[in-house]
Design a protein around this nucleic acid. Structure first.
Lengths: 191, 191, 191, 191
DNA sequence: GATGAATGAGTATTCATTCAT
DNA sequence: CATGAATGAATACTCATTCAT
């Protein structure tokens, strides 16, 4: 039932893991607790389903990004806006899903997703910074991705998802980082 | 009891909110459940205490940063290293505390902390980017802070806190952003 | 669940507040502890429910009293017998409820009840002693009510609820007091 | 320690059995919990001591009553006033002690006391009603005693211990009952 | 003696899950 | 299929009592 997914996402987003309980989710979804278990074998299965759906939303947003033609600054703005809008429905969801909730089945729940997620950033680095898809640029992609995520999640937490100054600064951060990578042949520091 | 704080931090870091339960914390701390409640009125009070302690640690790390003399790149490296080491003891703690756990008392649990936290970044922007401490640079500080946090939290989650490539990329990100701010007189977009 | 109410009343009556505990009540009622909390938000809510039910029983007994026709001595006997039978099921209950148990919600748990309770005695005084319903007769009603209650509670405590001598003496007490009021125009002493 | 007795009596009177807990009593008494257990083997021993002391106070009040000379109405007034003053210090105590609290040792905790207590009433009946000390008058004594107690306990509960109308009505009740006994050769009803 | 930190059995309460209807 | 009352293991928290200092 889609209502259950939606209710679960909302509770998770608003009350976090601590407030997430099957009876409450079922009630908010307007179905009986029995129906809940008709569709989901257990609580964690719902978490997994919510995660999958949300991560698909995020990927969808990134996949639609204009990689081919545009100027770097247009790409940066498009990236930020896409992610902001992907977090609009349930601002708190992403961080709870990635950071907190245990997973039902998969060893690494975010793994498949993360691979593609990082991959998109890596491709952007390839295109806008003219770098090969080596280990180094994968680390760069991860850092950029995590930085953008961090800003968006915290903006969501503070209710500043639509704040113009934040958006501008984040776009600047992305743009600057990518353009700098083009120039740099930095030497990875030692661990 | 400090042992309780330490045990609580460890469990929170390793098992998240879902695995955090007073009996387990007491057992890991090596005290009886009765002693737990001698020192903390309830479960949330321990969370608050852990949060306070951890945030103090983070602030301490930032306060010790060399703001006066050094070159921007030295500052960036010092910043990243300080935060990495502040997260060394309980890598998962910060994100659980900020992102997931409910708060007992304070209206905004991270508020006082966050004000100083952002303030330090704002000061760095003032020094290294030559910007006044206006609203705009406060947004910049917030974005930079959240970006750095995001990278570090995710690195902690993946066990990559001591990964050299990540460190190098993050330092580059900080350095680039700060040096770009110096050049830019950007117009904050409207919300 | 009515079984829970009944079990609670029985335990309260037999073991007092000290022996009253949700798990035991649930077990005696033949339901799981979970079901207990399905019907009562907490322990005190059950107390309140038991109190309400018991006080209703008492009121019911008094409401049915023959006020119109009969001779004073018939009324006194009917009053005593009604109250004795209202205390028959759970002899210790009333005193525990009034004297010992804390209340969940209402400011004065017995208040609404007490008002009607005293009111019935006041009406009897009006009828059988020919007195107006002023402050003075309200005090008389209170005293008579408390005296009768005291005798019945203590008889219940000693297992003498059906003792004939006690019954006769109590009836005499009521009858004597009411008939004396008819004759007296006493001056209430100063506080 | 007398302070412990006093503190225990106060808590019992004000909060009932539900609020009576050794740590709180010790704190109110200004001694450590350790000292508490120096003087009392356990919680119930304190209850017993409090009960003994209180019942002694009540007996003392009754023993001082003027049985020999005075008119019935003077005796009734003296009786009421003595009991009122015996309940002045801890108005709620008596009912909690008699009605609710379990006892440590004695089979019937109030027994020895009650025997003398009732005995005094029986003697008064003998004197003022000219009745022999048979079973019948023992029942009368019990009823009168319980009636008076009931009025005083409930007055204490409502904070009306010094209310003049209550006092007058209670005195009237006692006086009327005793004088009626003198006239009556009633036949005890069947059990 | 006096102290009060520590103990842990006991009690209140929650919530994932089942199953008879 | 849908329902929601019932279940009980798990968890939060209390308080009588001990004992090392």
């Amino acid at each position: 039932m889609d209502a259950i997914l939606e209710a679960g996402a909302r509770i998770l987003s608003e009350s976090g893991w601590a407030g997430f309980n099957t009876n409450v989710v079922a009630k908010l979804a307007g179905v009986s607790i029995g129906s809940f278990y008709q569709y989901f074998p257990d609580k964690l299965a719902l978490i997994d389903a919510i995660r999958d759906r949300h991560l698909q939303d995020c990927l969808m947003a990134l996949r639609g990004l204009p990689m081919d033609a545009p100027r770097l600054e247009d790409f940066a703005a498009a990236l930020v806006d896409a992610l902001v809008s992907a977090h609009g429905r349930h601002p708190g969801l992403h961080r709870v899903l990635l950071d907190e909730t245990p997973s039902g089945g998969h060893l690494d729940p975010a793994s498949a997703f993360e691979t593609e997620y990082i991959g998109i950033y890596a491709r952007a680095i390839g295109i806008f910074a003219g770098r090969a898809l080596d280990e180094k640029s994968r680390a760069d992609a991860m850092v950029l991705s995590d930085a953008v995520d961090g800003v968006i999640h915290n903006a969501a937490r503070r209710g500043q998802l639509s704040d113009g100054s934040i958006r501008a600064a984040l776009i600047l951060l992305v743009e600057t980082f990518l353009s700098r990578l083009r120039l740099t042949d930095y030497k990875g520091a030692s661990a």
